[in-house]
Design a protein around this nucleic acid. Sequence first.
DNA 1: TTATTTTTGATAATGATTATCATTATTATA
DNA 2: TATAATAATGATAATCATTATCAAAAATAA
Lengths: 131, 131
Amino acid sequence: MKKYSKQREVILESLKMRRDHPTVDMLYEDLKLQMPNIGIATIYRNVSELCACGQIRKIKCEDGIYRYDGNKENHIHFECNNCHKIFDIELEEEESKKIKKELQNLANTINAEFDKQEIMLSGLCEKCKKQ
Amino acid sequence: MKKYSKQREVILESLKMRRDHPTVDMLYEDLKLQMPNIGIATIYRNVSELCACGQIRKIKCEDGIYRYDGNKENHIHFECNNCHKIFDIELEEEESKKIKKELQNLANTINAEFDKQEIMLSGLCEKCKKQ
DNA sequence: TTATTTTTGATAATGATTATCATTATTATA
DNA sequence: TATAATAATGATAATCATTATCAAAAATAA
């Protein structure tokens, strides 16, 4: 049985507002401003919970530190090899469905039950490309 | 300047033969059999090197422990949420090119220089689905 | 209100990965 | 070929993101 907690609400709200794919540390630093007593363990616990029930996504990066994403729109990710920021690439509804179907078909080739997908591109972002 | 080492050769060979996406620990246990004095730090160092020069791939999983993949054929990955094994889904040459092109186009929408891609599907594998 | 159960915050423990460093192996040079 | 220069190794200590523990606080049920 899941009990309400102000902390979880605040964490989810923050992740839904932000578009920068924060780490737990980044969330912690930010949330301390509005809730000075919040503990970092609470953030770890709640992002796990929120991932488990599909309200946010966990992003796995080159450096092994997880980022979290509260954006529920159809999109994929791009990680810059230079500045290591994560960028969203938004997908049209049609395109998203097409990709999902293709991946569904691929999962079928190994008789797997397809549930989730994560597409991560990498290279240089617009800014880093110019340097 | 890169010097030859027997250890690196053995690590690369092992990764090219295996199809089970081993962790560093799994590689270590296996390679000790043929090279009893090999140190685990040597394996960490060399898989990093081999990733950096594109000879193998690093796979990021739910549990945060990296797997390594010496398979250079066109393929994507499927992670089972139950047994946590990683499966390959091989792609036809044509299909692979098509997907690469689609992703290239998507990277262009944010003016990024597209370099690599990783597609990770998840759900239940054939075996776990049956239970 | 009181009892029950979950969550929190603080902190200790864990464990994968990285850093350090003396020794060894490889390559370059005389 | 012998020797110098340099990079890689193996052992182990250090790092640090994440998880486990637990008493106190908060949320829900009775």
